[in-house]
Design a protein around this nucleic acid. Sequence first.
DNA 1: CGGCTGACAGATGTTGAAATCTGTCATCCC
DNA 2: GGGATGACAGATTTCAACATCTGTCAGCCG
Lengths: 202, 202
Amino acid sequence: MAEALTGEAILVATEEVLRRYGPAKATVVDVAKALGVSHGSVYRHFPTKAALREAVTRRWLDHTHREFAAMSAHGGSASDRLRAWLQELFDRKRRAHLEEPELFETFQVLVKESDSIPEYHVGHMVELLARIIRAGVETQEFMADDVAVTAQAVWDATDRFHHPSHAPEWGDPHIQAAFDAVVSLVIAGLRYNRGPSSAGDA
Amino acid sequence: MAEALTGEAILVATEEVLRRYGPAKATVVDVAKALGVSHGSVYRHFPTKAALREAVTRRWLDHTHREFAAMSAHGGSASDRLRAWLQELFDRKRRAHLEEPELFETFQVLVKESDSIPEYHVGHMVELLARIIRAGVETQEFMADDVAVTAQAVWDATDRFHHPSHAPEWGDPHIQAAFDAVVSLVIAGLRYNRGPSSAGDA
DNA sequence: CGGCTGACAGATGTTGAAATCTGTCATCCC
DNA sequence: GGGATGACAGATTTCAACATCTGTCAGCCG
């Protein structure tokens, strides 16, 4: 026989099958066929179809996480880095949605299939945001009582520009202006934000 | 015969049929049956089923708009009024979603059926936000170059707490804390927001 | 022996024929 | 005359028979 069947080879084949057939039509039998084995063999490496799909998704997200971790280390003021990081995130998602809608849709479906994946992904992205904000707090460019809470608030406030359920709006020609307005508002808030109990300031 | 068949009576009957059967099962024949007329008569008052559904939705939204317009006039500082207005919006939607999920789902479907309805609704709500922000700018509590743009940014930044596609998250016990964090960040930004070109300030 | 196979049961998805619905309009009845 | 009716054509939905898929496992083969 040619090669030992590895989990890695199965993941690669599964990703290819998902790209070709989409999430609704891709079957374990297709994956086995692509590898020239019986579908029973696939179940020796992954307990269920759901686990297999989740492993593919996690591998892909880990790759993305590494790229954004590198981005959050780039130079400039904390505001500039934050704006650039959010802009890059928005640009990538928007481009993926507009230029490869089927692939974007596929990964959106995969991510939603599991509860733990979105948690994992969002947790990771918010931690990267927190790094930028923490740096800004250290140089006194930003104010934040609780960096973790603030980072989550920045993530939530920019939801419209990264949450896939808003993807249909990303083709709107005014969307970049809306992004700029929200990010400017958020950055202004970071420069002068004393947290949930700040209602009495002026 | 009992009464003349009016557009108003048809709207009331349609709303009842929608509540009872849901948006997928509610038919024009059901509406006609509820009114004791033939379905042909309904088409004398509304050109299509879509127009009928849209009229029901618009009537319901207009009612909501009136209530929120009243809210945005209440006293207190601009921050307090803004926070209270956003909280009321969030509370109503969250309660509707958690306590009457089927009815909430029904109206969500109706709103999405038309392109003009969401535009109409969001435009109206953003205008109400703009009124509160404008009052804040006049008392120098807030800063905003362009109130309309800023109001839209506030709406967008709080999307997670009013856009129906985020409804599944509204049952999360931490959601109120997330809401408070975002609103605090936004209000801090309004106190010190010079618009999209403010990246060079300090 | 140990990974691989393929037949199998129950679950899930597909398909096409039958039923229902939408929108029209010639006709009816007050 | 003018609003209401109900039969009708084409579009959409439902439903059940059929096909495929998932996950298991006893047995095969290197």
